[in-house]
């Protein structure tokens, strides 16, 4: 069983929801990444989403764009991100790591080389923003061969037929983007999320994480009542951006810890 499935099974037994923080690999600087990842786990992260920096992050809002630019200033590329995960795994064998990024760095490395090396480094899942299911048949084959979960996005505008298609390909969990727009947008409509999740659950048996627009304890708790996992990205990346280097770890710890508490306060729905 994959690390991701193990985590969700355990949480389900405990009647708890998953908290999935997102950070960009190499931000604020490459040397700090493994300690930052361990800090996330200490603060209560169940799964870590690690952003792979890309020169053209089309689906990201300003916060994550800037994080990507900061990482690229340190010349962090896909193979460095894999090494970071390898380093993290030396002291953590249980927390799943999901890479989130864009297609081209993977295209440049090659599907087979990437999948083999990612497995070796301890990557558990990969979400490639610009590989929609229609263009993913080959890609998913390579991930499956190396037992890496293929994570897919679903959005408020995804029609029924596509939900079923995604359900066939997706593994680990699916990531429901709760808003139109880019990462870091505001104004989450919880009633919309609740309605859409009910619709998704008629097709999808694996856990559903919800992200985009979760910026504080209140929304984190509310979303935890609806979904299996709460994904928080831009808010954490902003915390890293505004913190002095010496305070990044403690500030991120404090923020993630408070989100953890909020998620655990959620009633056991679903």
């Amino acid at each position: 069983m994959s690390r991701i499935t193990t985590v969700f099974d355990k949480l389900r037994q405990q009647k708890r929801k998953a908290l999935i923080p997102f950070i960009t690999a190499g931000d604020p600087e490459p040397a700090m990444m493994t300690s930052l990842m361990h800090e996330l786990v200490k603060a209560g992260a169940d799964i870590i989403e690690l952003g792979v920096p890309f020169s053209d992050p089309m689906a990201d809002g300003p916060s994550i764009q800037r994080a990507s630019e900061r990482a690229l200033k340190h010349h962090v590329c896909l193979k460095d991100v894999l090494t970071m995960v390898e380093d993290f795994r030396k002291n953590n064998q249980s927390t799943p790591v999901v890479l989130m990024g864009y297609a081209n760095p993977i295209e440049a490395m090659g599907y087979e080389t990437f999948a083999a090396r990612a497995k070796e480094c301890g990557v558990d899942g990969v979400l490639t923003v610009d590989y929609p299911p229609e263009e993913s048949a080959e890609w998913v084959k390579y991930l499956r061969r190396h037992k890496i979960d293929a994570i897919f996005l679903l959005s408020p505008t995804t029609p029924q037929a596509r939900i079923a298609h995604v359900a066939q390909l997706a593994q680990g969990y699916v990531y429901y983007v709760s808003l139109k727009g880019v990462t870091g947008s505001l104004n989450l409509d919880l009633r919309d999320v609740a309605n859409k999740l009910a619709q998704l659950r008629s097709h999808i048996s694996i856990p559903i994480g919800v992200g985009f627009g979760i910026r504080d304890r209140t929304t984190a708790k509310a979303v935890a009542e609806l979904a299996d996992a709460v994904v928080v990205g831009s808010r954490i990346v902003e915390e890293i951006e505004k913190s002095a280097k010496t305070e990044v770890l403690s500030n991120v710890y404090r923020l993630v810890k408070s989100l953890r508490t909020a998620v655990d306060e959620a009633g056991p729905a679903h």
């Binding site: 053209d56 089309m58 590329c77 896909l78 193979k79 081209n104 760095p105 295209e107 440049a108 610009d130």
Partner: peptide, 22 residues
């Protein structure tokens, strides 16, 4: 250039060896 994926399509791109667009 070399083939890759950018701006919604697969095509030739000017990129570095790590797939970053230059």
């Amino acid at each position: 250039g070399k083939p890759g994926v950018l701006h919604g399509n697969r095509t030739y791109l000017i990129q570095d060896e790590n797939g970053q667009i230059v």
